[in-house]
């Protein structure tokens, strides 16, 4: 389901692969499609193919599951917060597998703070909206939508609040990934290390 559109060809021989031009040997199996793939990996020696393959499979699945949690939240265990965290975890998995290329930023140009801010705006406005109908702040109502013979759908207005929370949490997790994940990795690379030294504090 996530096959790269252009399969990277080339025999894994000792010599440079003759086929697709100037790809260096260390990059010949680099993923070339962008959607749903882990991003560029700065150091190919750090790649773990199993995790990458698993991440390709799991990333969309976990996202769908998070949306399920979001919708399920009103009647069962779930909701915007847990949904958002699960979706955030999908991004964390992708980060661990594929490095700090954030797909939302690189592909859709959405910065994490904007995502968080939008979520908060949606949530607050949802909270304030009932005032327009003369109801108390944060009141909610239920819409019953019937689809004839296909059944019906109960939509609760607090779902919008949950959507806001969902976006907010994803934004926050992505921001955390950027500052604590990519940021620390970048600091370490700039310091010429592959990972932060393990001897941080504690020994006293």
């Amino acid at each position: 389901m996530t096959t790269p559109s252009e399969a990277p060809p080339g025999p894994p021989g000792d010599a440079d692969p003759p086929g697709p031009g100037d790809t260096p040997w260390s990059r010949w199996d680099q993923p070339s499609g962008r959607w749903m793939l882990p991003g560029a990996c700065p150091d190919s020696r750090e790649r773990t193919l199993v995790l990458e393959a698993a991440a390709r499979l799991l990333f969309p699945t976990v996202l769908v599951f998070s949306v399920y949690l979001l919708f399920e939240g009103h009647y069962g265990p779930g909701g915007g917060f847990s949904g958002g965290l699960v979706a955030g975890l999908a991004f964390v998995l992708r980060h661990i597998a594929g490095g700090d290329d954030n797909i939302l930023v690189s592909r859709f140009g959405i910065r994490p703070p904007v995502l968080a801010g939008t979520g908060l705006v949606i949530a607050v406005l949802t909270g304030l909206a009932p005032v327009l109908w003369g109801e108390p702040v944060l009141a909610s109502t239920k819409w019953h939508i019937s689809f004839g013979s296909f059944g019906y759908l109960d939509v609760v207005s607090s779902l919008l609040l949950d959507v806001g929370v969902y976006l907010l949490i994803i934004g926050v997790v992505l921001d955390l990934l950027r500052s604590l994940g990519s940021g620390i990795a970048r600091d370490a690379r700039e310091a010429g290390e592959t990972a932060p030294r393990p001897d941080t504090g504690g020994g006293r």
């Binding site: 955390l176 604590l180 620390i184 941080t200 504090g201 504690g202 006293r204």
Partner: peptide, 19 residues
């Protein structure tokens, strides 16, 4: 907790320890 982690990291970067 995440905030404290970040603070500890900054401290480690700036001061060299997290005391």
């Amino acid at each position: 907790t995440t905030y404290l982690l970040a603070l500890g990291y900054r401290s480690w970067v700036l001061v060299g320890h997290d005391e």
